[in-house]
Write a protein that binds this DNA or RNA. Structure first.
Lengths: 145, 145
DNA sequence: AGAAAAACCTATTGAAATAGTAGGAATTCA
DNA sequence: TGAATTCCTACTATTTCAATAGGTTTTTCT
């Protein structure tokens, strides 16, 4: 019952791109250095974000990545869902909408679906812009973020 | 990012004990049959709940388990924590209170700790008594719970 | 006393998920 | 052409998960 490194790193990468956004493409090498994560591992993660349309990329020399939208438009939930998949803690309801066979008689069903809802509501309530604000409120740029 | 079967089964076992509570000891065999889970696997799970003081047990013929407290006194969170351990989704703060090395500069820290808090608040807000009510509101006793 | 029924204990196992590593192909720019 | 980059996908080691398994101990009933 943990968020994987992929999910956490995805948030860090997106935040890094948001904080260092100049309109130019930012090479993964720079992000990896700032974040202390290998380029190779980040390639996989940023690849998922890119294929989801969250980023624009440019190959070759001077290539890299940049955001396609304003930071306010990325909820943390949407970022996590790219790498973690569905964020539900229980398989009461599958992604295809199919319910657990016990659902008719399951007294815990509403507890679990309620739990999934508070999580979903929370992660949707935060955006990249909120995290940027957090970063700017602290002395983030004196450190390696 | 899923609650394990141990956690989910623990809730079902506790609810089963609460719904079938007569003051007598209930053998695991009965619970296992109702829940469709093997006795052997449930032994491990109920053992954890028992060692945590959530149950009274009696060995030997006519032995079994029963609750030690009133259903209102068991939060679902407390049950889940027995089998799942700490319910935090991220290792920002360890169980021993030690913080992640990045915590000083981590802009996502308050996001993650806030997420853990909404989860903790939610799971503490539900008790076994609430689930019993859910069970009784539906036609639970016509089915095998 | 003896048999049966239950809790109790802990090792083992197979499968899946996690957290990367690795090697190279394709693209772009200078 | 060469360097820097993205892009793609296979592989691997470790850990976690979900049980299974094989017993030992305790208690009650006959």
């Amino acid at each position: 019952m943990k968020v994987s490194t992929k999910g956490r790193y995805a948030v860090r990468v997106m935040l890094d791109l948001a904080l260092h956004n100049t309109g130019e493409y930012i090479p993964l090498k720079e992000i990896a250095a700032r974040q202390g994560i290998t380029v190779k591992y980040l390639e996989q993660i940023i690849g998922m974000l890119n294929r989801a349309g969250f980023l624009q990329s440019l190959r070759g020399n001077n290539g890299g990545y940049r955001l396609t939208k304003a930071p306010e438009e990325y909820t943390i939930g949407s970022i996590l869902r790219i790498t973690e998949g569905d964020l539900r803690l229980t398989p009461c309801i599958e992604e295809n909408g199919q319910e657990c066979e016990r659902s008719e008689t399951c007294a815990a069903m509403s507890f679990w679906t309620g739990l999934d809802k508070v999580i979903a509501d929370y992660v949707e309530s935060y955006t990249l812009a909120d995290l940027m604000k957090q970063a700017e409120d602290t002395n983030w740029d004196y450190y390696v973020i």
